[in-house]
Computed example of a mutant assay.
Amino acid sequence: MEKKVTDSRDKQGERLQKVLAHAGIASRRQAEQMILEGEVAVNGKIVQTLGTKVFPEDKVTVKGKPIAVPSGDYVYFLLNKPTGVITSAKDPQGRKTVVELLRKVPQRVYPVGRLDYDTSGLLVLTNDGELAHRLMHPHYGVEKTYRVGIKEKLTVSVINQLRNGILLEDGKTAPAKIHEVNHSGEGSFFFYDITIHEGRNRQVRRMFSRVGHPLITLQRIGFGPLKLDSKLLPGMYRSLNKQEVQALRRTVQLN
């Protein structure tokens, strides 16, 4: 009979399938299947019992690769990402990363999704892997709103094309919401807010290039229920409040 990992300790640990989900490895249901199929080990021993509890000091591996066991202290931050920063935990080329901007945060956090090197704006960082996994999953269709700056005013025809979907090399985009923004004091640029729910690589830039209006600026100003704070300057971040975290969880059916 398999010896339980937690038999000599109290019962305050976290269930193994929940740990895998929070680490962003898979959904909780998928994590349960991985455990049953013998792909998960705790302290060097394969565990196939659902509900097995693990603790922060335990060593958990999935297909031989280690994952961190969280302490249960989940944190959530909203960063106003500046341009010229990589959306990654580290960069082989030595460029500045968004994680470096949160170097004073004691927990190890990761960005939810990506913003291009030359794109600024709202980015969520957290150590809650399950929430991050769902927010990035196309099944939930989390809306992202971007403010774009272009040199020429869009015609009604082009606006309708963007709203109805643009044929790109990887297929037609889903319908988008778009409207002009009265944004004075920015030279001769014209600004529009566009909302999409897909997550294709450089999608907004490619959409506007395809209709003949390459972007001059691109800033994400909305992510699900979150909006970019006007007082949060580029490079600054803040913690999400309880209501904002709950709103994110409702967006991906975690409440």
Rank of each mutant, 00 (worst) to 15 (best):
K63V: 00
K63F: 00
K65H: 00
I67L: 06
I67F: 00
A68C: 01
V69K: 10
P70G: 09
P70H: 14
S71E: 14
G72Q: 12
G72D: 10
G72T: 12
Y74E: 04
V75R: 15
F77P: 05
L79H: 05
L79V: 08
N80R: 07
N80C: 07
N80Q: 09
N80L: 05
K81Q: 02
P82L: 11
G84E: 07
V85L: 00
S88R: 08
S88V: 07
A89M: 05
A89T: 14
A89G: 00
K90D: 08
K90Y: 01
D91Q: 06
G94H: 02
G94S: 03
K96R: 15
K96H: 10
K96A: 06
V99T: 15
V99G: 03
E100W: 03
E100M: 02
L101V: 08
L102Q: 11
R103M: 03
K104Q: 14
V105I: 15
V105T: 12
P106R: 07
P106W: 09
Q107G: 06
Q107L: 08
Q107S: 13
Q107P: 08
R108M: 12
R108E: 13
V109Q: 11
V109P: 12
Y110H: 14
Y110S: 09
Y110N: 09
Y110M: 06
P111M: 13
P111C: 13
P111Q: 14
V112L: 10
G113E: 09
G113L: 08
R114E: 09
L115E: 04
D116H: 07
D118K: 14
D118N: 15
D118C: 10
D118A: 14
T119I: 05
S120Y: 02
S120R: 04
L122Y: 12
L123A: 03
L123Y: 06
V124G: 04
V124Y: 05
L125Y: 10
L125R: 09
N127Q: 07
D128T: 01
L131G: 05
H133M: 01
H133E: 02
H133N: 10
R134W: 00
L135S: 03
L135F: 02
M136I: 09
P138W: 04
P138H: 06
H139S: 14
Y140G: 01
Y140T: 06
V142W: 11
T145P: 03
T145F: 05
Y146V: 13
Y146P: 10
Y146D: 11
R147I: 15
V148E: 02
V148Y: 04
E152I: 04
E152H: 12
K153G: 03
K153E: 15
L154S: 14
T155P: 05
T155N: 06
V156T: 13
S157I: 10
V158S: 07
V158M: 05
V158I: 15
Q161V: 11
Q161H: 08
R163G: 07
N164V: 03
G165W: 11
I166C: 01
